[in-house]
Structure formats: C-alpha cells, structure tokens
C-alpha cells in the first residue's frame, strides 16, 4: 500500500460522513466535504490528524471564461473549453472553496474542497481553528464573494474599499484585455525599413 493510500484511508476514516468524494491528483489527496461540516473538518484535521499547518484557503469558479479577442490561428492566447467541467473530486455547482492543510511533523498534507451555493456563496470561517485563515478568507471574500460566517472583520485586503465586484470570478472581465487585445501573431514587429515593413503595417491596420 503506497503512502497516499495509507493517508487516504486514515483521513477518510477520521472525517467519516463529512467526505462526499475523494480523489488523487498528481500525488495529492483531494477531498470533497459537505459544506455544513466545513469547520468541523478543519477541527478534525488539526486535532486528530495533526495537520497543524494551514497552507492556503481559496476559491474556484468553474464557469468557463468568456473568450475575448481570439484571433484565428493565434497560439499566444490560451484556448479554454466552452462547457462547464469540474476538477478532481467533482463539484455540485459553480463555486467551490478549497484549502490545503499540512502537518509539519508527519509531513502529510491534503486538499479539502466544499461546494458553495451559487446565488449567495457562504461557509463557516476557519479563523477559530487556524488563526492564519484570517487573511486568506478576506482574500477569498473579495475575490470570489464567498462570505465566511464568523470571520471577525471581513473587509477588503488587496483592493480599495470602494471596489465593486469580485475579480477572480470568471464573469469579471479582464479590462486590460478588453481594451487592448493580446497582439498575438503580430507580436513581432519588423525592423523599420525592412522589406516586410510596409506589408505588416497594412496587416496590422486591417486587424
């Protein structure tokens, strides 16, 4: 039995009913837990599994991003699938919150995910379990609009206080790209005075 299988059995047994699904992603254990037990999972992880180290808490929006300014044959703008698919351990909806906890003594670690309500995403705060969750939750709140119930002061971390919207949601446009599309194939400009100079100017003008 490999280390990962041992860990999987240990973690799933300790967490019991809370786990909906578990999967292995590139040697990392990913668990999907029930939203109601989000906080109790953290308590179990810290107290029973010895995961004393909080690596991060963040969110993910599974909605495909609307593509902008994609020129035909342009390989420099990433192509993304158009339909909604979910990653390791699946998801019930668009938003998920995920966190990575680790143990500094046993050298183990795993990722925990939970599905969120799409209309009003909220879940319990981990601040009382891991004090370091404070900033991570503030970041997740401003970036995804996930409300962490029980967080002492959920206020903007990176963005100015008057900022509207949640930038990391897929439907939040990256304005820089809207205003000025990625130059793509015309990225390399010819030397002035060279033969192809005139042609490329015409091409750029048309594009």
């Amino acid at each position: 039995m490999s280390d990962l299988e041992v860990l999987t059995t240990r973690v799933t047994e300790a967490l019991g009913d809370s786990v909906i699904e578990h999967a292995e992603a590139c040697g990392n254990l990913v668990l999907r837990v029930r939203l109601e037990s989000w906080r109790s999972v953290a308590e179990t992880a810290r107290k029973e599994l010895g995961c004393n180290y909080l690596s991060f808490i963040s969110g993910i929006d599974w909605m495909p991003a609307p593509t902008v300014g994609l020129i035909e044959g342009d390989t420099s703008t990433p192509a993304q699938p158009k339909e909604m698919t979910f990653g390791a351990a699946g998801s019930a909806g668009r938003f998920q919150v995920f966190a990575h906890v680790q143990s500094t003594s046993q050298h183990i670690g795993f990722t925990i995910k939970a599905d969120l309500d799409e209309a009003a995403p909220h879940c319990e705060s981990w601040v009382s379990v891991y004090p370091g969750a404070d900033w991570h939750e503030r970041e997740c709140w401003e970036m995804y609009g996930v409300v962490f119930d029980g967080h002492p002061s959920l206020r903007h971390l990176y963005l100015p206080w008057e900022f509207e919207g949640h930038p990391l949601r897929k439907d939040f446009p990256l304005l820089a790209r809207e205003v000025k599309p990625w130059p793509g194939l015309t990225d390399v400009e010819p030397m002035p005075g060279s033969e192809s100079d005139e042609d490329s100017k015409d091409e750029a003008g048309e594009a």
């Binding site: 690596s55 963040s58 495909p64 990433p78 192509a79 993304q80 699938p81 990575h100």
Partner: peptide, 20 residues
C-alpha cells in the same frame, strides 16, 4: 513554502492557478 495549485481543463493555458 511556495506552492501552485494548478487547475487545467485541457487548454493551452491554465484554468485557475492558486499562488500560495
């Protein structure tokens, strides 16, 4: 500890990168 949680959907670019 520097960590990247990379989520790929099979495209030429990452779908989501959590930078820890």
């Amino acid at each position: 500890q520097m960590g990247y949680y990379v989520v790929s959907k099979g495209g030429t670019g990452p779908f989501r990168v959590k930078i820890r």
